[in-house]
Simulated scan of single mutants.
Amino acid sequence: MSDKLVTFDPLEDANLNVPAEMVAEMAKGIEDPVEIARRFGFKGARWDALVQWKPFLDAVQKKRAELEAEGWTFRAKAGLLAEMMLDDIGKIGLSSEVPLMQKLALTEALVKWKEPKQSATAQQGTGFSITINLPDTSKPREIDITPSKPLVE
């Protein structure tokens, strides 16, 4: 028997390759981590090894911090709360006690919320811009069209 210390790298020995999408799903915290892991093929010993692997835990924490900094976490929570309240808002809006103008405002808001917003980068595109400066047309301009040479000699 050897007196050498044997190291064990669970990722190397279990052949664990963690997809970036899985790290993002874990960081979002919406679903149970075990279910996310199963969906990506991590079960039993592979999952047990992964959940204890510091680089994986650090990657999830880093992604979670990125999502919070980008405002994703707040928007996700706000969306979830809005969805939970939607049935109640609908019932209130359908009530005969609500004035017509409030019903109209609610209807307009619901239609607006239904349409996905386009990001500014999606509207602008990348790397190309056209600017057209139109002259001030509030004052009429005269254009002299007198020929410099007579047309007929």
Rank of each mutant, 00 (worst) to 15 (best):
K28A: 09
K139Y: 10
R38T: 13
E25F: 00
E153S: 08
S96W: 07
S129H: 07
K114M: 09
V6R: 07
E68A: 15
P150K: 09
E21G: 04
L81P: 01
L134W: 10
P150G: 06
R39I: 03
L110T: 08
E83Y: 06
W47K: 02
F40E: 03
E97A: 11
G71V: 06
F8Y: 11
W72H: 12
T121E: 13
E83L: 12
P116V: 13
A105S: 13
E68S: 14
A76M: 06
M22W: 00
D3F: 12
W72Q: 14
R64Y: 09
A122R: 05
R38K: 15
A45V: 10
S129Q: 09
T7S: 09
D3N: 11
P19V: 04
G127K: 08
K63H: 12
V51L: 05
K149T: 07
T146E: 07
V51M: 07
I36G: 00
T131C: 01
L11T: 03
K63I: 02
Q61V: 14
S2L: 03
G127T: 10
P19D: 05
P33H: 01
E12Y: 02
L151R: 08
V111S: 10
M85P: 00
W47F: 15
A49C: 05
L94S: 11
A27S: 07
L81V: 14
K63F: 04
G127F: 04
A82D: 14
A24L: 04
L100P: 00
L104P: 00
I145F: 09
A20C: 01
R38N: 15
M101I: 08
F128R: 11
E97Y: 03
E12F: 05
I92M: 11
T146Q: 08
N17G: 04
L94Q: 08
E108H: 03
P140K: 07
K103D: 01
P33Q: 09
S2H: 13
S95Y: 01
V18N: 00
S129N: 02
R75N: 07
A105R: 12
D9L: 02
P147F: 02
D144I: 10
E25R: 02
A24D: 05
I36E: 00
V98D: 05
G93Y: 00
E68G: 10
N17M: 03
G41H: 05
Q102P: 00
